[in-house]
Computed example of a mutant assay.
Amino acid sequence: MTIVTSEKSPAMPNPLEALLAEKQYLLADGATGTTLFAMGLESGEAPELWNETHPDRIRKLHDDFIEAGADIILTNSFGGTRHRLKLHHAQDRVHELNKRAAQIARSAADAANRKVIVAGSVGPTGELLEPLGAMTYDEAVDAFAEQIEGLKAGGADVAWIETMSAPQEIRAAAEAATRVGLPYTFTASFDTAGRTMMGLAPGDIHGVAEGLDALPAGIGANCGVGASDILASLLDMSAANSSATLIVKGNCGIPQFHGTQIRYSGTPELMADYVRLAMDGGARIIGGCCGTSGEHLAAMRAALDSHVRADRPTVDDIVARIGPLRNKQAKDSGASAGETGGRRERRRPRT
């Protein structure tokens, strides 16, 4: 697969690239779903509906992450396509719900005492594209464009395509963002024997946007399982193209059941060390996914600000400092331990 370098930039204005050029490294926010559950979101309830019913809680979500040091906040719109919203009988409200999500995040960002990027969260549709499913590529583009139009109308700076599995679905979302006129990033979850559930390997992610009219402002990985695995995937991505703007947004340790509640094992100290290793491994945008609270993010901010990039780690370095990989195939997949990608189990939707 041909590698796409970062030399060709999207044609539309890109506040994300401008802030990245200014600061070199950016901190993305933490967990949306985990935080909303702590605020009272019920299992099976659509977080996107809270943009209208509980806008004060969504605003607090963003305010808390900004206070903790986030340079990038993600809108509460992960399941904002017509296909996801149909599960909650809200498929005819795509534009208004996504617009409202972006407006809330925009108001929080504009109230900050520094530049904060509003990233319009775009998750998978939940449908399979042809030939595995019934959805055509053009239908996927249309669905994503409908969502991204709402995000743009609400003030999003960039379309943040995340937790993806199928390369064609990533391309469809990227094409939709370009059609709407927003720069975009995308991240995949490498959670099935070192690949996404649909077979994409970390080192091949650079070729996903090949041939599109606008190239991504950043690419990378999010969700999956713990920090060790996403850092191992980062090594594969940076080994394949060291000039790419790479993103990692890893889960806060490993999910563990405590009675009926799920808690994540990662401590603020562990997530701070994850940030240092991510910088050393080639990431430019670093954040947290499931389980990452404001307390974790504050420790990550301190690490990002104080760390001077050091030698590229190996997988063995990562395991020694962060903990074991969750997939035994990780060390057996690459040319060496230092160029081995992460191997993950199947993940839940981004929380």
Rank of each mutant, 00 (worst) to 15 (best):
T35Y: 15
L26K: 07
A11T: 12
D29S: 13
A21C: 07
G33L: 01
G33H: 11
T35L: 04
L26P: 14
S6C: 05
A21W: 00
G40W: 08
V4C: 08
A38C: 05
E42I: 02
G30F: 06
T35W: 14
I3F: 12
S43G: 08
M39F: 15
F37P: 04
E17L: 10
M39D: 12
M39N: 14
A11I: 06
A11G: 05
L36T: 03
G30L: 04
S9C: 00
T5I: 00
K23I: 07
S43L: 10
S9V: 08
A18M: 05
S43P: 08
N14G: 02
E7S: 12
S9F: 00
F37L: 01
T2W: 02
T32Y: 14
I3A: 11
P15W: 02
P10E: 00
L16V: 05
L27W: 04
V4F: 01
A21Y: 01
G33S: 06
S6Y: 05
N14W: 00
S6Q: 08
E22A: 15
D29V: 13
M39L: 11
A18K: 13
E7M: 00
E7G: 05
L19Q: 10
D29P: 14
E42C: 02
P10Q: 00
L19W: 01
M12V: 14
F37N: 01
E7A: 10
S9R: 09
D29K: 13
S43C: 04
G40H: 12
T35R: 13
Y25R: 06
T34F: 06
E22F: 04
I3W: 11
S6D: 06
A31D: 13
V4L: 07
S43I: 09
E7D: 10
G30V: 12
K8F: 04
M12S: 11
S6K: 07
K8C: 01
A21N: 13
L27I: 03
T5C: 07
M39P: 04
T35D: 14
T32E: 08
E17C: 02
L16Q: 04
I3T: 14
T34V: 08
A18R: 09
M39G: 12
K8V: 10
L36Y: 07
A18I: 08
P15S: 03
A38S: 15
T5A: 03
P10G: 10
S9D: 00
A38H: 15
L26R: 08
P15M: 01
V4H: 02
S6L: 01
L16P: 05
L20S: 13
G30S: 14
G40I: 02
P15I: 01
A21S: 12
F37D: 00
A38Q: 13
Y25A: 02
T5Q: 07
S43N: 10
A21L: 03
K8N: 07
A11H: 09
A21D: 12
T2F: 06
P13N: 04
A38T: 15
Y25F: 15
P13F: 02
T35S: 15
T5K: 10
D29I: 11
S6V: 01
F37A: 02
E7T: 11
S9Y: 01
A28Q: 08
I3K: 14
Q24G: 05
K8T: 11
G33A: 06
M12A: 12
V4S: 07
F37I: 02
D29W: 08
E42Y: 07
L20Y: 12
L26V: 10
G33V: 04
N14S: 07
L27N: 03
